[in-house]
């Protein structure tokens, strides 16, 4: 049944730190690699060596610019995969029950055996988190690496999504949002983690940490720190140095 569980025991998901993501696409490719070899059908590529190569990816990194009037523009790299919404419209629209949200941890999955490839769930997802695999004809989406996070064949430290494990900048965090003490809950609270398109009421589990304020030194109204000269010409400065040095007691470090 494609109805959503009224609540889930855990709320597993990701925190993505937009202040730290350098846009390297490591998460994109490691996701592709893991999910090609694991859960369900491989993520196929059409015209891989030709014109317009187009493949299935479960995670993609956009680049945006944000510019406030009169300030310098900022670049924000923006990774996006399934947000494992609590109120996932992609699940309820599915005619076959292939799409479902797991009761135990809230992961939204597609059971590929049941999927007829109608695409409606992708239509229902506001975020573009679902892609219909052109080779296999089934819907693909981020599995939150359900075949890693509980995988007893992996060492404990590695039971984390492939994209999180690989992110060189440490901009991706995985954890249980139902637990207020989890790393993800804390980061969300401390850094003002936000929802994407909250107006749609999808209640995404994944949270985005906004970039910290930038370019404070461009704001000329703020009195910038400023160094007081000790001397304006060479002689004076050399004299000053001489004084400083002669004040130095034998082996202590000076504070200048």
């Amino acid at each position: 049944m494609t109805s959503l569980p009224t609540s889930t025991e855990k709320k597993l998901g990701l925190v993505i730190d937009l202040d730290t993501c350098v846009g390297c696409h490591a998460c994109v490719i490691s996701c592709k690699g893991w999910n090609t070899e694991n859960y369900g059908a491989p993520l196929s590529d059409q015209r891989p060596y030709g014109e317009e190569p187009m493949g299935t990816f479960l995670n993609r990194v956009h680049s945006y610019e944000v510019q406030a009037e009169g300030q310098s523009a900022q670049t924000v790299h923006f990774p996006k995969s399934c947000l494992h919404c609590e109120n996932a419209p992609c699940v309820t629209v599915c005619p076959t029950g292939a799409s479902y949200k797991r009761a135990e941890d809230g992961i939204v999955l597609v059971n590929e055996q049941d999927c007829i490839g109608c695409g409606l769930c992708a239509w229902a997802c506001p975020y573009g988190a679902r892609e219909l695999d052109q080779e296999e004809g089934v819907m693909k989406k981020c599995t939150l690496c359900v075949d890693r996070i509980y995988n007893e064949n992996l060492p404990e430290v590695d039971r984390t999504p492939a994209c999180v494990r690989t992110c060189p900048a440490g901009a991706r965090h995985f954890g249980d949002f139902a637990d207020p003490d989890s790393n993800v809950s804390k980061l969300t609270a401390e850094r003002g983690g936000m929802d994407l398109m909250p107006e749609l009421g999808t209640a995404p589990v994944n949270k985005y940490l906004p970039p910290r304020p930038k370019d404070s030194w461009d704001d000329e109204s703020i009195l910038a720190p400023f160094l007081e000269p000790v001397a304006d010409e060479a002689k004076g400065l050399l004299g000053w140095i001489d004084k400083q040095l002669s004040r130095l007691p034998g082996d202590s470090k000076e504070e200048v």
Partner: peptide
């Protein structure tokens, strides 16, 4: 089948970039 970073390695300590993961 799959390439991931080596956690014990002094350079990358487990992480891997896009190119590294695409080695396959």
């Amino acid at each position: 089948a799959y390439i991931e970073g080596n956690r014990d390695h002094p350079v990358n300590q487990g992480v891997l970039c896009a190119k590294g993961s695409a080695g396959i």
